[in-house]
Each structure stands twice: as structure tokens, then as C-alpha cells.
Computed example of a mutant assay.
Amino acid sequence: MFLDVLDLRNFYAQSLGRITAHYIYQRIRQHWPNVNGLSILGVGYALPYIRSMRTGAERTLVFMPARQGAVYWPSDGASLTSLVDPDRLPLPDSCMDRIILVHMLELVDSPADHLREIWRVLTPGGRLLIVVPNRRGVWARMEHTPFAYGRPFSKGQLTHLLRDTMFTPVRWSEALHFGPFKGKSWFGPARWWEKIGARLWPAFSGVLIVEATKLLRQGLPSKEANLMQSSFRPVFLPVPNLPNSAAKMPMRNPFFDWQGDDHWIDED
């Protein structure tokens, strides 16, 4: 179940949403301090975290699920956002250097299928950054935040999922150690709660952030197989005469017919 793009935009327009984006973005910049000259893709609702990366990056794109809807961004030029099917991204193989998933992996029907598609478009040696709700955290239980929807993850679950889809986790971090309270009186000391929580209760953070790299598996030739092959000589046989009316296998039509309630709204 995907959240509506209006709900996500309204959350990040509020005071709680702005503070949330601030502390998550701090952790993201620790993982990726320099993105100059790189191609970056944000999938889900990554606008609050990818906006400032646009200036130094070679190319910046934002893909949003068709069942969620999309906003027009940036407002001062051609749109860099697109509605997509999460399991069929409209990109060629190995074309993006950095990919960030926010409000995405916990909401898709099949996280493994989506990560395999992310693996396809990520360059060899490229980096994937995933932000997901922490199963142990309070934020996964407070429905006035978007992190309370979908399936939250633990570190163990996310590690198994990444390894099953040929990714290797290389670095972990946490964010949102303060409570998701609406009162403005909590926003001032949120900085102190974030520092104290990172030291005293990191396992109960609101979100988990994991950086992973694309794993390439290569088969090694067997020495036994090489020795056996060298002891035989090739024998050329005549090609049999096949009837001209041999049946041909039907080809699958690659056309993909998307049916869904796609909708767009303008981002102010």
C-alpha cells in the first residue's frame, strides 16, 4: 500500500517533517559527502533528500510509483520526476552511480523484485542507500508520520534481503532518536535528544539507513574441465536436413501495458 503523494508532501511541509528531513539528510551526507559528477536516482519520495545534490551531480532523476503519484520538480525548469512501475524502471542497464530509496522499500509488494531492478540499473561499484522504518522504533507505531506505513525492518531482515538480491551492506547508520511529537516545544531540544539517543539507545531509532554496493559474481574455470577438454579432438558431423515447415516458437510481445490511476500535481 503506497501513501498518496499529497500526504507525503504535506508531512514534509510541517515543522515535524522539516526536522525529520534535516536529521535524515545529515546521515545521508555522512554516507555520501561528495556526489560531484555522479548520476543520482531517487526512488519513492526522495525530494527532501535529493534537492541539494542536484547542483554538483552530473544528472539527477526522481522516480515515483504510479500508485503514489508524483510532484513536478523542479518548479523552475523541465521536470526531473517521472511515474514508474517499481519493478520495471525505464532505464538501461548499469547507468546510475548512486540510488537512494526513501518511502519505497517498505511499501512495495515485493521488496526482492524491486531490489533486483535497482541492481540492474546501478553501475558496477555503484552505491545504494536505503532509508526504512526501524521495527524497534517508536516512529513505526505513530500513524501521523509516513514511517508508520508498510513493513518496518530490522537490521537482520534488511541484511538477508540485500544479500539475496546480490548487494553487500558496507555501512549502517540510524536517525530520528527523538519522539515523533507534534508539539513545537519538543522541536528545540530535538538536537540534544538526537545526540543522546545515538549514544544510549541506537537500536530504537526511528529509521535505519544502510549503504550497500552492487555485488558481481564471476564464475571461475575448473582445471579438471580444462584437462578433460584438452584430451578430446573435435569431430565435425554433417548437418541434418530439417523440413522447411518446422514449427517456430512464438515470440513474446515485449509491449508493457500499464493500467493504473496515474496522477500528477505541481510542486510549489
Rank of each mutant, 00 (worst) to 15 (best):
D109W: 02
R67A: 15
D93K: 14
P65D: 05
G37S: 08
P90D: 07
P33H: 04
P48A: 06
D97E: 11
R98T: 02
S79D: 11
T123C: 12
Q26T: 08
R67Q: 14
G42I: 05
M104I: 04
T55N: 15
R120A: 03
G56A: 12
A57S: 15
L115S: 07
R120M: 02
P48L: 07
L122E: 02
P111D: 03
S39G: 12
D76Q: 11
R27C: 08
A57G: 11
G37Q: 08
N36I: 10
Y72N: 12
P65F: 04
V102I: 12
L61M: 13
I100L: 15
E117I: 00
V71A: 03
P90W: 07
I28H: 13
M53H: 13
M96I: 10
T81C: 14
I99C: 10
G44Y: 07
V35W: 15
L91V: 02
M64L: 11
A112F: 04
R88H: 10
H114M: 15
P86K: 01
S52W: 10
V84Y: 02
S82L: 10
A57E: 09
I118D: 03
W73N: 06
H31P: 00
V35N: 14
D113P: 00
C95T: 05
R120H: 06
R98S: 04
M64Y: 01
D93V: 02
F63R: 06
L122V: 00
V71F: 00
M64R: 05
D85N: 13
V121H: 03
E117M: 04
A112W: 05
S39T: 11
P86W: 00
P33V: 07
I99S: 06
L89A: 01
R27D: 05
V71W: 00
I24S: 11
L91P: 03
M96S: 08
Q26W: 11
A66G: 13
E106D: 10
G44K: 07
Y23F: 15
T81W: 00
I118V: 14
D85T: 04
R29T: 08
I99E: 08
Q30P: 01
I50S: 08
L83G: 05
A78K: 12
A70D: 04
D109Y: 03
G56M: 06
L83C: 04
D97L: 02
I100S: 05
D97N: 11
P111E: 00
N36R: 15
N34P: 00
V102F: 10
S82H: 06
I118C: 10
G44N: 07
H114P: 00
A70S: 13
L91I: 01
G56N: 14
L122K: 07
P65N: 09
G69Y: 03
L38I: 02
V84A: 01
S110W: 01
R59S: 14
S110L: 03
L80V: 11
T60C: 15
P74C: 10
N36Y: 13
L89F: 01
A66D: 13
Y45P: 01
G44D: 03
L38N: 08
L41Q: 09
S94V: 01
R29C: 09
F63G: 10
S75W: 14
L107V: 04
S79I: 09
F63C: 11
L101S: 01
W73A: 12
